[in-house]
């Protein structure tokens, strides 16, 4: 799958990543992303038709018994939150307004 990297794509990635870049940074990133994708295109040239994809170096995941354990004390749980109110963590408005 060929992806062409241009400023428009970078703008979309900015919005998905919730960051904003300066015009210079944007030009830099276009170059970087194109080079990174070229590496992947090189890897894509290998014929892997008969090879099972591997997603993890460990061969098998594990399971846990359905037995409850004590949760964190609340003060400790929200200690690192910058803003809080009545035990809630305060987050941003979600409508962009």
């Amino acid at each position: 799958m060929k992806v062409s990297v241009d400023e428009e794509l970078v703008r979309k990635l900015e919005s998905l990543a919730l960051i904003s870049l300066s015009p210079e940074e944007r030009r830099e990133i276009v170059k970087d992303l194109s080079r990174i994708l070229d590496f992947f295109n090189k890897i894509d040239e290998i014929n892997l038709e008969d090879v099972e994809p591997m997603f993890h170096p460990l061969s098998q995941g594990r399971l846990r018994k359905d037995q409850p354990r004590d949760p964190l004390p609340r003060d400790e749980a929200i200690k690192n939150a910058k803003k809080k109110k009545d035990g809630y963590i305060i987050g941003p408005s979600t409508t962009g307004g």
Binding site: I90, P92, T94, T95
Partner: peptide, 12 residues
Amino acid sequence: SILTSPYTLLDY
């Protein structure tokens, strides 16, 4: 209301 709230309170 989601539309008029200036922030969101989160309960995990």
